[in-house]
Each structure stands twice: as C-alpha cells, then as structure tokens.
C-alpha cells in the first residue's frame, strides 16, 4: 500500500524523515503550520519561510515553499529584505528561541519596533538543543543545563511581554499541546498586517527535560497540560515562565498600527512623487554630456 503524508503537498517529502528527536515538539509546531495553511488555502507560491540555525532552523527546509535557511540569528533581517523587495509575499520567520531571542534578539526588537509585516513563530524549548543543551535567554532560572550545571542563575526573557513592548501588533503564546489554538493563531497572524509574534512552547526531553525532572516527551507534555493557564487578559509583565511553574497562554494582543511598508508608501513614496517634477526642473542643467 502506498501511504501518503496528509500534507505531502506542503512538505518536501524527499527530505523526510526529519532530524528531530523522539518527543520533540517541533513536528507538532510544523504540523500546526501545515494545518493552518492547508485550511486557509494560501497560495503557496506567495509564501516564503525563513529560518535561522538550530533544530527549529530546519523547519523552513521541510516545507515545500520558497524557503531560506540563513545564518544563526539572522532570519529576521533576511526576511526584512525579502519582504521589502516583494511585499506580495507572505513572509514567515519560523525559528527557535536561542536563534531569534539570543543571538538574533536585536533584530527581533527592531523588526517589532518597525512593525514590518512579518510573522514570527518562535519555538521556545528553553534550551540550545542542536549544540547539546546549553542554557539560553529563555532558560528558566534554576534549570540545569550543560552550561548551567549548578542551576541557571540568569533571569529569562518573557517573550510575549518583550514582543508587545517593542511594538508587535499581534502577540500570542501556546504550547504544542494547544494544537488547534496554535493553528488558529497562526492563521490570524498570516492574515494580519504587521509584526506578529507567536511563542510556541515546545518540549525538548532529550536535552532539557532529562536534566530537569521531566524525562520524556510525554512527561513534558503532561507538565504543559497540568500547568497551562489560558488567560488572554493576563498582565503581560507577569507571565514569565519559571522552572516547573505555570505557563500562561493565550492571544494577548491583536491591534492595528500602520506597517513599515504602508508608511514607506504613504510618507516616502508619495512625498517623492509630489516633489519630484519640481525638483528636476530645478536641477535640470542646460547642457547634457555627449
């Protein structure tokens, strides 16, 4: 019998099986995305997915769309150029927490500030997975990792709070257990004009859970199940994730603000159009070089 993957249209099936470990949540995040775009019947030729480096960085390459696997942390600025060069494209940045918030944090805050029309899906597994489980900017305080063997002494970023305060117009957080809500959120982001940010909490049993009393993917998912609180009205400054603590999820922000491209068209290009003829009359020197 010839079994086909239900999303074989959307995936580069010749690249499967994927590289992710058993119990990893990235497959679910990718599946939610496939569900979202399949349901929306998005024109796939006008969809571009950009990833950085890391386990999550592999997502772009599995999708059968124009996909770019850039350098570590640089998915957002690459996507910025792509989006501005062709604003018709629906540009999605799909990458990990270490990539987008660690090494690429500067780009995240500035892209949000500019309200570029990018959809950023940040898979947060609390750890640098690909390199072997080092602590990162989202590792909860106290957690054990390869580079915090005595427990992490740093505070972690609260990503929805960060994105919202930098100017994102759409902010949500879900765990990979909330697959339908995640899908819906992705669809909303894809339809949204402006910088949209979804934090996707995902288990990494291999390199995070095992060292932090959650040995398997199932155990980590059970933790998500028992500790998730759906509260879209939560005060964003209070929803940081602590080790073994509550995970507040929901769609926290959905507002309107002119995008970079809208303002570029309105302010820059129209202004140029208005003054151009005048200016060239002024500057038109009599003699032409021959």
């Amino acid at each position: 019998m010839n079994f086909q993957h239900p999303y074989s249209e959307l995936l580069r099936t010749d690249r499967l099986p994927h590289i992710w470990c058993p119990g990893c949540g990235l497959g679910i995040a990718l599946d939610s995305f496939c569900m979202a775009i399949a349901e929306m019947k998005l024109p796939l030729d006008k969809l571009a997915v950009i990833s950085g480096i890391g386990c999550s960085g592999r997502i772009a390459g599995y999708l059968n769309v124009d996909s770019f696997h850039t350098t570590h942390g640089r998915a957002i600025p690459f996507a910025t150029g792509l989006h501005l060069a062709n604003p018709e494209l629906n540009v999605v940045v799909f990458s990990g927490d270490g990539d987008l918030v660690g090494i690429g944090g500067n780009h995240l805050i500035h892209a949000a500030r500019r309200n570029l029309n990018l959809k950023v899906f940040c898979v947060n597994n609390f750890i640098y997975g690909m390199t072997g489980g080092q602590m990162g900017p989202t590792t909860p305080p106290g957690a054990i990792s390869a580079t915090s063997p005595f427990g992490n002494i740093e505070y972690a970023f609260n990503l929805p709070h960060l994105a919202a305060s930098c100017g994102a117009v759409y902010v949500a957080r879900w765990t990979v257990l909330d697959i339908l809500k995640l899908k819906k959120s992705m669809q909303e982001a894809l339809n949204k004009k402006g910088f949209s940010f979804i934090e996707i909490i995902s288990p990494c049993p291999t390199l995070y859970g095992r060292f932090n009393n959650q040995n398997t993917g199932v155990e980590m998912m059970r933790y998500f199940k028992t500790h998730t609180v759906h509260n879209p009205k939560a005060n964003l400054s209070e929803i940081e994730i602590s080790h073994g603590g509550q995970i507040v999820v929901g769609k926290f922000l959905d507002i309107e603000r002119p995008t970079f491209m809208e303002l570029y068209r309105k302010v820059v290009q129209e202004r140029v159009k208005r003054t151009l003829d005048e200016k060239y009359e002024e500057k038109a020197y009599p003699q032409e070089h021959t």
Partner: peptide, 13 residues
C-alpha cells in the same frame, strides 16, 4: 549584520 542579511533577502526577492 542586519544590513548584510537584508540585502541578501532583497536579492532573493
């Protein structure tokens, strides 16, 4: 760093 990447993105655009 961002500038260089934005240029690359725009070229592929």
């Amino acid at each position: 760093i961002a500038s260089m990447n934005a240029v690359l993105g725009a070229v592929w655009g």
